[in-house]
Design a protein around this nucleic acid. Structure first.
Length: 112
DNA sequence: GACATGACCTCTG
DNA sequence: CCAGAGGCCATGT
């Protein structure tokens, strides 16, 4: 098993597994980890993602509404939005329009 | 060891 | 439909 390398490491793995042009949600990751209510923890992992040695595409992680909640945490103002748009995502008012189509659920894609 | 915080989610009124 | 509160896990002080 993947020892307790850190709850974060687990989150990073999933986020890194997110294919380009796809986005995932905190709840989906939390559920994939086995804690459907630990969505907050996922957000914390993203916050500490900058501590990871590798780059974490946190811009691909949005809330359930497809809202770029963490955009404010990015380096800038609309950096996250541009990155997602660059991947083919349609965003308006910090919200992903076609989020439903680009939603990537690790539980269904990777399987439990 | 307890309290407070965090890029959330879901339910109820 | 909008507003409020609770729950969840981990980290830091």
């Amino acid at each position: 098993m993947n020892r307790n390398e850190g709850f974060f490491q687990r989150v990073y793995e999933v986020v890194l597994l997110v294919p380009r042009g796809r986005v995932t949600t905190y709840g989906a990751i939390a559920r994939y980890l086995g804690s459907p209510g630990a969505a907050r923890m996922v957000g914390w992992a993203m916050n500490q993602s900058h501590t990871s040695s590798e780059y974490i595409p946190a811009h691909r992680v949005v809330n359930r509404n497809g809202l770029l909640t963490g955009k404010h945490h990015f380096d800038g103002t609309n950096l996250m939005q541009e990155m997602l748009e660059n991947e083919g995502a349609h965003i308006s008012e910090n919200r992903i329009l076609n989020m439903k189509e680009m939603f990537w659920d690790p539980v269904e894609e990777l399987g439990l």
